[in-house]
């Protein structure tokens, strides 16, 4: 099982590298899909079916959103740096990442070994979850009962993010529209209204 896990992780790393280095933005986004769907498999292997269900739908929706944005704008990546500047940027980035990796590698030895977590808090949840909440899915019991505050906060963040999307992408306001009769600024929704 550990071997399969490591192979899937290597696949994810390869997909991530292709997603970042691809010249065509559409193929880069589809390579991001490799990472997301491999993550679904990893969640299933790690015995987290809740996460797998959520991740497989979220990944699909994220691909739809990104591809919709790409189709509305452009799919060519024209940001190429040339010459000595490129080498300098790459060296700086890689040097920083190497330093980061070195220090984090020393920290990782402090973590509990893979497969033997410290379950100081979760032990209580596991033993008391069914009697205290009546829910047999312990993840649901935790997110909605023991840690309801967290979920309330997260739902509020989601609400705010969606409000942000709607505000950023809304059609031009009424006052601005009278000042600017420019046809290029009119978004699609107004066209539909006129029909």
């Amino acid at each position: 099982m550990l071997t399969i896990l490591i192979l899937l992780l290597i696949l994810m790393i390869l997909g991530a590298i292709i997603a970042l280095e691809g010249k065509d933005l559409l193929s880069a986004i589809i390579s991001l899909g490799i990472v997301g769907f491999a993550l679904v498999l990893v969640f299933l292997i790690l015995q987290a079916p809740d996460l797998a269900i959520v991740q497989i739908v979220v990944e699909t929706l994220a691909l739809i959103i990104l591809i919709a944005a790409i189709l509305k704008t452009t799919r060519e990546d024209t940001t190429e740096t040339r010459g000595a500047k490129k080498i300098f940027i790459y060296l700086c980035g890689l040097g920083f990442l190497g330093l980061f990796l070195f220090f984090i590698n020393q920290t990782l030895t402090e973590l509990p070994r893979f497969g033997y977590p410290i379950m100081r808090m979760a032990g209580n949840y596991l033993s008391l979850g069914l009697t205290k909440t009546g829910a047999s899915n312990l993840v649901a019991a935790i997110i909605l009962d023991f840690r309801g505050y967290d979920t309330l906060g997260e739902v509020t963040v989601l609400f705010t993010a969606v409000m942000g999307v709607i505000v950023v992408l809304r059609k031009i306001g009424r006052r601005t529209r009278e000042k600017l009769p420019d046809e290029t600024k009119v978004t699609g929704s107004r066209k539909i209204e006129e029909k």
């Binding site: 929706l61 189709l71 709607i166 992408l169 978004t187 699609g188």
Partner: peptide
């Protein structure tokens, strides 16, 4: 909440007019 939120995100992106349409 989640269903309505994600549908709102999609519908705002979908009615935008871009080069592809």
């Amino acid at each position: 909440e989640v269903g309505a939120a994600l549908f709102a995100i999609f519908i705002t992106l979908a009615v935008l007019k871009g080069k592809g349409d």
